[in-house]
């Protein structure tokens, strides 16, 4: 198992390098000029020096290697310095955003908590809704509950999040006025009132994303339960007189969870991608919203870094899903 994990970790390095190259080359085609926002009166040689100051004077491969070094070598050192008070990264050039002229990673770290709170919580809520629905609708296959569950989950992944979000805003913010339509990130939680305000503003984005996630996961849970419910070991368990509750919730559920857990792990990066839209709907200033503003402002280093962070998440969670599958299912041997 350990050798498998190590092998997969080593294999993911060329994958990540290739992805970063693809993103880099794609952005290289960008027609936008970062100095376009400067006034037209500045002379061309000054403009050229401005471009050089942004690191654009170097040839392609030099810039790519520089980016790799900054991302994989210097930024981790900055993190170490921050954690342990050392000074590895002192005087070294960090990844700089063209938009704000400040280190990209600092902005990302500022934005990450909002995304993690909304996305993370919605995924947890989604899973918690999905599992019981999946179990029940498999146990009572073709019952009314199953039919409704099927319809709701079909609805859940057919209705796009930008419509459910807007619909919720129309109903609960415009008509009823229960929840705020804009997520206020400056809110500091230090009292009960603040906590309630935070809770109120999180309800809608979390619910929108949770519904979308629950729709997919409950389908997988149902299918996986159905696969197991007709197995011989279930009949054995019933035959030796175990209660129905134990049979379903212990024997069947444990075996059905194996594929579902990997699906849950695989879904995490997609959720981050999908959160871009939800963040836009509810004006949450997380990393998705950061990406959109960076794209609109032609801030290429920021776009490159953020896209690459999304890619790292995907590769990482694919790896986690593979390893989890091996850990949970003793029949699977990778070595």
């Amino acid at each position: 198992m350990l050798t498998f994990t190590i092998r997969r970790l080593v294999l993911s390095i060329p994958t990540l390098l290739f992805i970063s190259l693809v993103i880099f080359l794609l952005l290289e085609l960008a027609p936008g000029d970062p100095t376009a926002a400067q006034p037209l009166t500045i002379p061309p040689e000054v403009r050229e020096r401005l471009r050089e100051a942004l690191g654009l004077g170097e040839p392609l491969h030099v810039r790519f290697v520089k980016w790799i070094v900054q991302f994989f070598w210097i930024e981790p050192q900055v993190l170490l310095d921050h954690l342990f008070g050392t000074s590895f990264a002192e005087g070294k050039q960090r990844l700089i955003s063209w938009q704000t002229r400040s280190p990209i990673m600092d902005i990302v770290v500022q934005r990450l908590p909002q995304t993690l709170w909304v996305v993370g919580l919605s995924y947890v809520v989604g899973v918690l809704i999905a599992l019981p629905i999946g179990i029940l609708s498999a146990y009572r296959q073709y019952s009314i509950f199953d039919q409704i569950g099927t319809f709701v989950s079909m609805l859940g992944f057919s209705v796009p999040t930008f419509f459910t979000g807007v619909l919720l805003i129309v109903i609960f913010s415009v008509h009823l006025g229960w929840f705020p339509s804009i997520y206020d990130t400056t809110l500091v939680v230090n009292s009960w009132d603040n906590f309630m305000a935070q809770l109120r503003q999180m309800v809608m984005p979390v619910f929108v994303l949770a519904l979308f996630n629950a729709a997919q996961i409950s389908r997988f849970m149902r299918a996986s339960m159905l696969d197991n419910l007709n197995q011989d070991y279930v009949r054995t368990a019933r035959a030796k007189g175990l209660s129905e509750r134990v049979v379903v919730l212990v024997h069947v559920l444990r075996n059905s969870m194996i594929p579902v857990v990997t699906v849950i792990a695989l879904g995490v990066p997609q959720v981050f991608g999908g959160a871009i839209i939800t963040e836009q709907v509810f004006k949450v200033n997380g990393i998705g919203q950061l990406l959109i503003t960076a794209i609109q402002a032609n801030d290429l280093p920021m776009v490159q870094t953020l896209t690459f962070i999304f890619a790292v998440l995907i590769v990482l969670f694919n790896l986690i899903a593979d390893v989890l599958y091996g850990v949970l299912d003793p029949r699977i041997r990778y070595d």
Partner: peptide
């Protein structure tokens, strides 16, 4: 499959 599709789509639209 390992590419972040939505961000890349956004980038592609912006670029081309």
């Amino acid at each position: 499959l390992a590419l972040p599709l939505l961000p890349l789509l956004l980038v592609m639209v912006m670029l081309f």
